[in-house]
Amino acid sequence: MPAAVGTIETVGFPAVLAAADAMVKAGAVTLVYYGLAERGNFIVAVRGRVAEVNVAVAAGIEAAEKVYGGEVVSHYIIPNPSGNVVDVMPIEYTAEVEQFRMF
């Protein structure tokens, strides 16, 4: 069964850092992507079991909004991404994150 994907987009770096930290601490998920979205917005993506991703994204949103000036622009969870989405988007488990992969 493919791993779910959860993403959070925030305004500014401190909020996305807080979100990423809370996400990996709250659920058995693996951080698979972090990057600049646009106009100073940042995005973080995690993968794992659907229930774990749901918990992680909720915790990430809460943490990001507690940061001074932190704002969550958007968030989304894909429970079962198709193979072509995984092949094209930067959400695959890479060798860099494989050691942290949650099964």
Rank of each mutant, 00 (worst) to 15 (best):
M1T: 11
P2T: 11
P2R: 14
P2F: 03
A3Y: 14
A3P: 00
A4Y: 02
G6M: 05
I8E: 00
T10Q: 00
V11R: 15
G12Q: 00
G12A: 08
F13Q: 06
F13H: 04
A15I: 00
L17T: 06
A19H: 03
A19Q: 03
A19C: 06
A20L: 05
D21E: 10
A22S: 14
A22N: 05
M23K: 03
M23C: 09
V24Y: 09
K25V: 08
A26W: 08
G27R: 03
A28S: 13
V29E: 02
T30L: 08
L31Q: 09
V32S: 06
V32K: 03
Y33P: 01
G35N: 05
L36E: 11
L36M: 10
A37I: 00
A37Y: 05
E38L: 12
E38I: 13
R39F: 04
G40D: 04
G40T: 05
G40N: 05
G40P: 06
N41R: 12
F42S: 06
F42L: 12
V44D: 01
A45V: 12
R47L: 00
R47G: 04
G48C: 05
G48K: 03
R49F: 09
R49W: 04
V50Q: 04
V50S: 07
A51K: 11
A51L: 08
E52Q: 15
E52K: 08
E52F: 12
V53M: 06
V53I: 06
V53Q: 05
V53R: 06
N54I: 10
N54R: 14
V55N: 09
V55W: 00
A56R: 04
A56F: 10
V57W: 02
A58K: 11
A58Y: 03
A59W: 02
G60E: 05
E62Q: 13
E62D: 14
A63M: 09
A63R: 08
A63L: 11
A64P: 02
A64N: 02
A64F: 03
A64W: 01
A64H: 02
E65Q: 15
K66M: 13
V67C: 11
Y68P: 14
Y68S: 15
G70C: 06
G70M: 08
E71V: 13
E71I: 12
V72K: 04
V72F: 04
V72M: 07
V72Q: 03
V72R: 03
V72E: 02
V73T: 13
S74W: 09
H75P: 01
H75W: 10
Y76A: 11
Y76L: 14
I78R: 10
P79K: 01
P79M: 00
P79L: 02
N80V: 07
N80F: 06
P81C: 11
G83N: 13
N84M: 09
V85E: 10
V85L: 15
V86H: 06
D87H: 07
D87T: 08
V88E: 11
V88Q: 09
V88K: 09
P90W: 01
I91E: 01
I91G: 09
I91S: 08
E92S: 13
T94K: 12
A95Q: 11
E98Y: 07
E98D: 14
E98H: 10
Q99T: 12
Q99C: 13
Q99H: 15
Q99F: 13
F100Y: 15
F100T: 11
R101E: 11
F103C: 09
